[in-house]
């Protein structure tokens, strides 16, 4: 039996966790595919090694945000020992809540006019 926790209670997520969950938002992936997706989606800002990636996956599985998929690739197409992971319903709620949090932050930043121009140090705009 799973005890349903309010997704908001797990926020904010660490960048590594958020990106792993985001990488799985489109469907099942194996470890290396998740790693590449994270690197690509962050333009190389977040690079995870195998230890960090599987440590994160382990904790997410324990927190019931991810689950291992039963799917195994065709042995002719890929290594059948690969493990695939997917988001659980709760994991999807959590990643959505985190995305909404970022959205609210982005809106706030927009209201503060942080977007659209870049203030250079020493060149304060005249009010």
């Amino acid at each position: 039996m799973t005890t349903q926790i309010n997704p908001e209670r797990l926020l904010p997520l660490t960048p590594a966790v958020f990106h792993v969950l985001l990488a799985l938002a489109e469907g099942e992936r194996h470890g290396y595919a998740i790693m590449r997706e994270v690197t690509e989606s962050t333009q190389g800002q977040i690079k995870m090694g195998p230890g960090t990636l599987y440590g994160t996956i382990k904790r997410l599985v324990e927190a019931q945000l991810l689950e291992e998929s039963d799917r195994r690739p065709d042995p002719e197409m890929d290594d059948e020992r690969r493990r695939y992971y997917r988001l659980t319903g709760f994991g999807r709620q959590v990643v959505r809540a985190e995305a909404l949090r970022y959205e609210r932050l982005a809106k706030l930043a927009r209201r503060k006019r942080l977007f659209g121009h870049t203030a250079r140090p020493g060149h304060a705009r005249a009010v």
Binding site: H30, G31, Y32, M35, P50, G51, L53, Y54, I57, K58, D79, R81, R82, R83
Partner: peptide
């Protein structure tokens, strides 16, 4: 739990 997929991932890398 993770020795095999980590090996696999490192090989791919």
């Amino acid at each position: 739990e993770y020795e095999t997929p980590m090996e696999q991932l490192f090989r791919d890398q």
